[in-house]
């Protein structure tokens, strides 16, 4: 009785080009919605931070869309955007990412200390210059934290699209399940996790590079804990 191995490497080897193609498709369908959502979340978040009355309804609408079962959304979209198209999969993902990113922008702007904002006003910043030069840069760490969550979940959510024929690596799950063949399923899971991990790592590096003042602060805090006596920098 020939024991079936959990992973058949020869299958992976034979189907590697297709797998890579699925991974690339998965990545595009995950990242484009996040980018679109970020572009939309910035003005909406700015408006929400400025006018509180605007914030709750906006988040409410986005959250309602977020709560809809994705399959239901796909079915509604198919007549408009077509079956098995990228657009059908990406539209709900834009809303999912927005549900994370709008609060992130609002929280990021709220993280600007009042005395910093006041001193910017007192130095003679115009409102636009204050926003671009002081408030948004200080909001970056909080926004990036939201962006990491949105990106990672978007990469894994794409696979749901396999139900309507376009799910990136999600295709491997359907394929493996239909054929009672675990290799594609495992390959799909590993690749989704790898892609998500890689994207997250890149965002962490971007954060280090964009906000050295914030990364250094975290490092200083971590350093201060074990050896309180020799805190670097805090002269």
């Amino acid at each position: 009785m020939g024991e079936e191995p959990l992973v058949r490497w020869d299958w992976i080897g034979r189907n590697w080009p297709e797998i890579l193609e699925l991974a690339a498709d998965n990545l595009v369908m995950a990242l484009v919605p996040v980018a679109v959502a970020l572009l939309a979340a910035l003005p909406l978040g700015l408006a929400g931070a400025r006018w509180r009355w605007f914030y709750q309804p906006t988040v409410g609408v986005v959250n309602v869309v977020y709560s809809l079962p994705s399959l239901a959304v796909f079915i509604v979209l198919i007549p408009v955007t077509g079956l098995a198209t990228r657009t059908t999969v990406m539209v709900p993902l834009v809303f999912y990412a927005m549900a994370v990113l709008i609060p992130a922008v609002v929280d990021g702007l709220a993280s600007v200390p009042d005395h910093v904002r006041q001193s910017a006003v007192a130095m003679g910043f115009t409102p636009l210059r204050r926003l671009l030069g002081v408030e948004l840069p200080i909001a970056v760490p909080v926004v990036l934290a939201g962006l990491r969550v949105a990106t990672v979940s978007s990469i894994s959510l794409v696979s749901v699209g396999a139900l309507v024929g376009r799910g990136g690596l999600g295709y491997l799950f359907i394929d493996g399940w239909q054929r009672q063949f675990p290799t594609p399923i495992i390959a799909g899971i590993v690749l989704v996790v790898l892609l998500a991990g890689l994207a997250d790592l890149l965002l962490v590096l971007a954060q280090r590079w964009l906000t050295p003042w914030s990364a250094a602060r975290v490092a200083a805090r971590a350093q201060a804990r074990p050896a309180a006596g020799e805190r670097k920098g805090a002269a």
Binding site: H115, A122, M123, G124, T126, W213
Partner: peptide, 22 residues
Amino acid sequence: DPPTLRRGIGYVIQQAGLFPHR
């Protein structure tokens, strides 16, 4: 005009109000 006025007046506040990112 307020921004112009303020650039000509030094201002110091309680918690210094330094820009953390600069």
